[in-house]
């Protein structure tokens, strides 16, 4: 177990350097420098040059990079050009919103993914198999910007079942910030109104986002279920007259779920980075929306901070997945 952790940590250092270097390089080939955005729509040359100087844009590139890297290790990701606030503060504000959305999307994907995966495996090559698979493949094929919009128009506009934007109603008293996840914070302080309200806001975006990952999970569950169902012990048990669904739940599913963990890890990472469009459409104040707006402003400290956070998160998730795998599957141990 320890070698894996060590390798991953070494990898983490690689990733931080690699990612920061690549993003940094990109930020400097872009036509359109941030000083021109700060100076305003009709800034004069003198002010523009002064701002360049202030931002350190006149320093040689390697000096800028070294400065940036020094900052990273002291927890300073620079100051956002657009919001004029420390990037770290901004990320801390926006990250929980994305995380909460992703967690719920993920719960949705797992719940239905496992369910459909099991059904399609047990009913292999019947119409249930095809319907289930078609349903899940539809998810990866639907452009989120279309499905999201249609959901808003139907369920918010016409039916009024769900709110169409934001994390919580405007006039709702916000739960105190403990974890930053509204549903968790509101439960911790026993504010059920806020809990229901924020859960309510979560439904549509998390379904839209989770649906995209459904098919990956269905496919993996289905294939490993098929493996397990064909194994000797299940066949024997079946021949001994044990109920089919009892077998599936009690034995087959448990063993089938182990390989699923890998996909799950990957898809969690994908969700974290893929929430961008969903956040745009549902006005979700998360990192995805933050980064899109930052790109529009060429706010590179913000973009770099975001990319770093996501990539480091990705490596950590992979580490957790590996460790889980070891814990759950005795064969891999040692």
């Amino acid at each position: 177990m320890w070698p894996i952790i060590r390798n991953r940590l070494i990898m983490l250092v690689f990733v931080v350097f690699g990612v920061s270097f690549i993003t940094f390089l990109m930020s400097n080939v872009i036509p359109g420098d941030p000083a021109r955005m700060i100076v305003g729509p009709r800034g004069d040359q003198a002010t523009y040059q002064r701002i360049r100087e202030q931002l350190g844009l006149n320093d040689p590139l390697y000096v800028q990079y070294v400065d940036y890297m020094k900052g990273i290790f002291t927890g300073d990701l620079g100051t956002s050009i657009r919001t004029q606030q420390p990037v770290l503060d901004d990320l801390i504000t926006y990250f929980p919103a994305t995380l909460e959305l992703v967690i719920y999307a993920f719960l949705f994907a797992i719940f239905f993914g496992v369910m459909i995966g099991v059904i399609t495996a047990v009913k292999n090559n019947t119409k249930w198999d095809y319907i289930g698979r078609f349903f899940s493949i539809t998810g990866v094929s639907l452009p989120v910007f279309l499905s999201g919009l249609i959901f808003i128009i139907i369920f918010y506009g016409k039916l009024g079942w769900f709110p169409g934007s934001g994390r919580i109603d405007l006039f709702m008293e916000l739960p105190p910030r403990i974890t930053g996840l509204y549903t968790v914070d509101s439960l911790l302080v026993g504010n059920f109104e806020a809990f229901k309200n924020s859960l309510w806001h979560l439904i549509m975006p998390s379904i839209i986002l989770g649906y995209v990952q459904l098919s990956t999970i269905v496919r993996q569950v289905r294939s490993s279920m098929l493996d397990v169902l064909n194994q000797e012990y299940i066949r024997t048990a079946k021949a001994n007259g044990l109920s089919e669904w009892f077998l599936i739940i009690r034995y087959a599913l448990r063993n089938a779920l182990i390989p699923v963990i890998t996909v799950v890890g990957v898809s969690f990472g994908m969700l974290l980075g893929g929430a961008v469009v969903t956040e745009m459409i549902f006005n979700w104040p998360g990192m995805g929306k933050y980064v899109v707006e930052s790109i529009g402003f060429l706010d590179f400290p913000a973009i770099m901070g975001f990319t770093l956070l996501i990539s480091v998160g990705y490596v950590i998730i992979n580490l957790i997945v590996d460790l889980l795998y070891i814990v759950l599957d005795p064969r891999v141990r040692e």
Partner: peptide, 17 residues
């Protein structure tokens, strides 16, 4: 309140409601 709404369709429905 100045509410940030990046989606026109959603803004429009909110106004109607």
């Amino acid at each position: 309140y100045f509410r940030i709404s990046s989606d026109v369709s959603e803004t429009r429905i909110s106004l109607e409601k």
